[in-house]
């Protein structure tokens, strides 16, 4: 039953195009109900991975399991429980938004009146009611993206695959789009995989990520855990009302503290085991009558992480 906790299990999943490898023996798991980020630069193999998991491409080697169904055995069942927002959106320009949704709904076996209710709620969820009868060919990029998202959701998939969902969107639209995705995850408990090459875009959206490059998995896991693992230490910042010379001595004397820097009334330091170091450091400072305003962890962006992982910087 252990595998039931995973929505997706990649098991040496591999895809070659004419001998050239695009996805190279990938193995990782995606837990049910999470928003999972698939990160990598252009050509890393994100789109290929999504096409494999949506049953569009056949693996050259290896397999994957989606909600207990194997690509190798039950690809049609997998297709019926996966929704995908493909990289090129692929809508029918000469059909209206409503007609696009009706076609795909029916293709997945959703029939009226159920179909009409779902279209209604998706259109209102995505603010598309006013343009439902407009040809999709006349839509802006953001609107197309929304229609394509609605299409991916029409059959209420258990797993939603979003290929670069916020590319081509302006920042306001992009933020809105991310809100929709968060709401989906919260309300429907849909497992969501988002691919992106733009890391800041997914940092506050995804709890777990896989970083891939040249088809290979470089790293998988919880974002914060990953950061810790890669840098091996955490960095903190203490702001004081006044920075007295005594305090410097106290900070430097605490065992486990390293790389101490001072700027203005701030102390920066690094440590590995923050659970031990921070309490004793704060206690020592308070005993020396230091007036502490705040203690924060210095956040590293995913960009930093990414650079470190891919380029080894």
């Amino acid at each position: 039953m252990a595998s039931n906790r995973f929505a997706v299990v990649l098991d040496g999943l591999t895809k070659r195009f004419n001998g050239k490898i695009a996805v190279d023996h990938n193995s990782y798991e995606i837990e049910e109900g999470v928003i999972f980020g698939l990160l990598g630069p252009n050509g890393a193999g994100k789109t290929t991975t999504i096409r494999l998991l949506s049953g569009v491409l056949e693996p050259s080697e290896g397999d994957a399991e989606v909600y207990g169904y194997r690509l190798s055995n039950d690809v049609n069942i997998i297709r019926s429980i996966v929704g995908v927002l493909p990289e090129n959106r692929a809508l029918y320009d000469r059909l209206t938004a409503q007609e696009n949704l009706e076609f795909y709904g029916r293709l997945y076996g959703v029939e009226p009146p159920e179909l009409n209710e779902r279209i209604e709620s998706l259109l209102s969820f995505l603010d598309l009611q006013d343009v439902r009868n407009t040809f999709v060919g006349k839509f802006s990029m953001g609107m197309r993206q929304k229609v394509a998202l609605a299409r991916a959701l029409i059959h209420q998939p258990k797993l939603l695959l979003l290929d670069e969902p916020t590319s081509n969107l302006d920042p306001v639209m992009s933020a809105k789009f991310k809100e929709y995705i968060k709401e989906l995850s919260r309300d429907l408990k849909t497992t969501i995989l988002i691919s992106s090459h733009h890391l800041a875009e997914v940092e506050n959206l995804c709890s777990k990520i896989a970083v891939i490059n040249n088809g290979r998995v470089i790293s998988v896991g919880d974002i914060n855990e990953l950061k810790r693992r890669i840098w091996g230490y955490r960095e903190f910042e203490i702001r004081l009302l006044e920075l007295k010379p005594d305090f410097k001595k106290i900070v430097e004397s605490i065992s486990g503290v390293s790389d101490v820097r001072y700027t203005g009334n701030k102390i920066f330091y690094r440590c590995v085991d923050a659970d031990k170091v921070n309490p004793s450091l704060i206690k020592a400072l308070v005993q020396a009558n230091a007036e502490i305003i705040s203690l924060n962890e210095v956040e590293r962006t995913l960009e930093d992480l990414y650079m470190k992982l891919i380029r080894g910087e």
């Binding site: 069942i77 019926s80 493909p86 692929a90 029918y92 795909y104 997945y108």
Partner: peptide, 14 residues
């Protein structure tokens, strides 16, 4: 030409 086939291939249709 219009590259609209991918979501169809992702649907349960033979």
């Amino acid at each position: 030409e219009r590259k609209t086939l991918e979501p169809v291939l992702a649907a349960p249709i033979t």
